[in-house]
């Protein structure tokens, strides 16, 4: 019970502080700005062609909004532990009743709640878009927004894990950029190799393609952004089983990374 009280106190301080920070609103505004730009192009093309070819016209703009919010959250959670380590405030917290578990779950809840507030803004934004464009605020969109809560949970737990490994803000940001960059590079490289006909590739390149397919499959279980794509795909496929399975995957992913973070923090301690 006392651990929950500690978590709540840590959550409250951090959440209110982040809620009053400008960066949070800049990220949300940026995501809406990019989505609006995509929507404008989409609406222009509908105007020109006079035909709507998608059953879920708002899903792609929603995906882009989520990616931007996720990038903000992964950086926010990615520096949350290392910042307190670097500033020494973590040490002071650990003089008292704070444990790695209560500290990390407090941070997780804070970042997830920030994500949920951002999703609330997103829902309002897409509702207004649907009113102005007649594109329809569908049940699919509601499902996608609910699924997003679990996907943001993956992003936050991944960020916290990276932060638990690093001692300084700069190292956390560099690690995040390097890891996410590597994920992206492998995905692009694999896609590029898939573009070639099998017969046109030399034997070594075929091996490279095969090896990359294994790496790509591995990454699709590690990268939180892969869960984002898969989760939203399950909404488009209208497959309830797949929808629930993806939520399950996201919950397991979050738990695994949170427990790993607590383990690493116990091992690494409070010093930068």
């Amino acid at each position: 019970m006392r651990t929950f009280r500690v978590m709540k106190t840590l959550f409250k301080r951090d959440f209110l502080y982040s809620l009053y920070s400008l960066g949070y609103y800049v990220a949300i505004f940026a995501s809406f700005f990019v989505s609006s730009f995509i929507l404008k192009n989409f609406l222009d093309s509908i105007g020109e062609e006079d035909i709507l070819v998608s059953a879920y016209p708002l899903n792609y703009p929603l995906y882009i909004t989520l990616v931007i919010i996720s990038l903000y959250l992964v950086i926010l959670s990615g520096i949350s532990i290392s910042r307190e380590r670097e500033q020494g405030t973590l040490e002071v917290l650990f003089y008292g009743p704070v444990t790695p578990g209560s500290f990390l779950w407090g941070k997780y809840l804070k970042d997830l709640c920030l994500g949920m507030v951002a999703l609330g803004f997103t829902a309002v934004y897409f509702y207004l878009v649907s009113l102005f464009t007649n594109l329809g605020f569908t049940l699919g969109l509601v499902k996608a927004l609910i699924m997003s809560v679990f996907l943001l949970s993956c992003v936050v737990s991944f960020g916290l894990f990276i932060s638990s490994l690093t001692g300084r803000i700069r190292s956390s940001v560099l690690a995040l950029v390097a890891i996410l960059g590597a994920f992206l590079a492998i995905q692009l490289g694999y896609n590029a190799l898939l573009g070639f006909e099998k017969e046109s590739l030399s034997v070594p390149m075929l091996y490279v393609r095969q090896a990359m397919s294994y790496v790509f499959r591995g990454i699709s279980w590690i990268s939180p952004f892969a869960y984002l794509s898969r989760g939203l795909d399950s909404v488009v496929l209208e497959n309830p089983f797949l929808y629930v399975v993806n939520i399950g995957y996201a919950v397991v992913y979050s738990l695994v990374f949170m427990f790993l973070s607590v383990y690493v923090m116990n091992k690494k301690g409070v010093k930068a």
Partner: peptide, 20 residues
């Protein structure tokens, strides 16, 4: 490790001060 009940009964002032 993480015996918080004991830690609740001690007060610490460190060499360097760290604040929010």
């Amino acid at each position: 490790p993480n015996n918080v009940e004991v830690k609740r009964r001690i007060g610490v002032v460190s060499e360097n001060q760290y604040f929010y």
